[in-house]
Design a protein around this nucleic acid. Sequence first.
DNA 1: TCGTTCTAGTCGAACGATTTAGTAAATCGA
DNA 2: TCGATTTACTAAATCGTTCGACTAGAACGA
Lengths: 350, 350
Amino acid sequence: MPASATMKDVAAAAGVSPSTVSNAYNKPEQLSAEVRQRIFATARELGYAGPDAAARSLRSRRAGAIGLLLTEQLSYAFSDPFAVGLLAGLAEVAERTRTGLLLIPLPRYDTDTDADVLRESVETVRGAVVDGIAAYCVDVGHPALDVIASRGLPFAHSDHDVPGRRVVIDEVGATRAVGEHLARLGHTNVAMVVDAGRATDVPGEITDETVLYTNARLRARGLREGLGADARVTLVSGGHNSVESGLAAAQFVLDRRDRPTAIAAGGDVLAFGVIEAMRRRGLSPGRDISVTGFDDIPAAEAAGLTTVRQPIRDKGRTLGRMLLDPTFTDERIVLPTELVIRSSTAPVRN
Amino acid sequence: MPASATMKDVAAAAGVSPSTVSNAYNKPEQLSAEVRQRIFATARELGYAGPDAAARSLRSRRAGAIGLLLTEQLSYAFSDPFAVGLLAGLAEVAERTRTGLLLIPLPRYDTDTDADVLRESVETVRGAVVDGIAAYCVDVGHPALDVIASRGLPFAHSDHDVPGRRVVIDEVGATRAVGEHLARLGHTNVAMVVDAGRATDVPGEITDETVLYTNARLRARGLREGLGADARVTLVSGGHNSVESGLAAAQFVLDRRDRPTAIAAGGDVLAFGVIEAMRRRGLSPGRDISVTGFDDIPAAEAAGLTTVRQPIRDKGRTLGRMLLDPTFTDERIVLPTELVIRSSTAPVRN
DNA sequence: TCGTTCTAGTCGAACGATTTAGTAAATCGA
DNA sequence: TCGATTTACTAAATCGTTCGACTAGAACGA
């Protein structure tokens, strides 16, 4: 292909100044329709595709896109209905404002995260041509946050305790309701299955809560509050937020001598893993052991899963508006949640 | 915030030339570790976030991201398991090469697509800061394709008949197998539910196949071939590729006097709509009417849906490699498909 | 008729980096 | 010890736009 034509070439060929060509594309009202048509015709002749995206971004200081930070693997994120819901909400706003959506994969920030991996991933954040960044499930203190801050990029996320504009739910209150519900049903020995990310190689009990995302930690706290001081709550994890790890964690729990009468999952996806583990042992949710989820993803209803409904898509939409709608100035939005009681929870059997 | 520091500022403060600062970030081996450290220290002091993304893209002619063209609404794409699978595969490759993934929404290109909408969306494609573009379900002749071509961007897609590098499946062969399977079961009156996009406001028969995506058209042809010339095949649509439109289309079909004994859907999602329509009438897939899908999305197995398995994620991966892996030079890849027979198809009842 | 406001453009300087070519000093082989 | 190579860094030229300031001429009101 021939070194492609630039605006200058088009200007020369059309007998106008480069600024006028620029205006033809960006400010139609600044020039006569006649000249504008001539410029477009010339552009077509020369095979000029229109203003170069990078140059335009540089000069105008606008990228026409916002970034979404995805912890966990990108390829995995799309199998997580929560992520998909958030993304859909964000995409809705982006689409309306004709803004692109750049997905940025980011490793979790654990104490043992490989420094090189971390550095490289931070490069990705640095190199992203975006006007703002949205995130969820970010680890407090992640180096990428510094990059965002020093780039001066607008930032919106949905985690407690992370600085910046945010849209959250009352995590503690939501799981407190779960705890109270279970307490009313007579449960006093409850296991909570959480997402501990890469921190857990082997399914097992989590004694160090600091490995959890802030939100997961808050959910654990709320559950404890709801159940009351007398109840026993064991935190377990099988790894990430996936059916597999929910399954693994539940297997661990179900094998213990002192089996809980209820298992609360930190997310619906995990809860499905729990249910699968029970199914394999011939146990039925509700009848034998009560199970709760969190999020109320679409599949939860069909499965009869008692869970906390949170407006996932609204969360995404709000993140989008925080970044793209200048009239939207709230620094902190709290969205409502609702305990949805279905058939997976029942009174404890004696 | 203070007008943020540039590379020049850092260079001045550190007592080196801007080129050296650039090298500190991009070519560590080009300078002494000592100077590099000093530069980073200075940068930190000045609150310099590292090379500006847009400027870097402009000068180096690299964007560090690839685009994915999404027909249909972005917000809708994520509810389509096929799209999600493709995206996951693409994301896998992108992630591995530390490349971002920019989602670009694009309206379908029908004869009646609003010209303004089209023009604006083409702007999005023009303005995307990317090194290449992947697409699926693109309409032949879509103006966005011209923009991609004239920008000289590498392009890879998964549609037949659209120019450019591509990864496809043997659409005709795959549905021919479906047709043959149905023929063997004795079906001679078959309806095919297809995605006709916005072309269909009201569910009904499709007589003008040109409104279909190329791939959908090929699927119809294959089905006809497999069923043989004696069979009757009716094309119907309820709109997009969604459960709702599958439902609508099936309702239309089921209401007709000469009801088909089998319904072949152009996608699993549509098939689920068909099954739902049947359920509402007390009809059971396989027992009363045979139903087939296409894609073999995860939910298909649980539903016992006879369908064509195509390696969706592989498709995405291959698209990614075409754009990002220089050693990958094939212009056209055909991936294998497999007819998966489950319980939703059965011999026709007399 | 004169000053003012529009209209339709022009001009030149950024925007913030990377790249190519080049240089002075240090190191090397024989 | 001498020319050749390597090392560590610099200078200047872009990359392709958009932006702010400016202007020649037309149109306008009084």
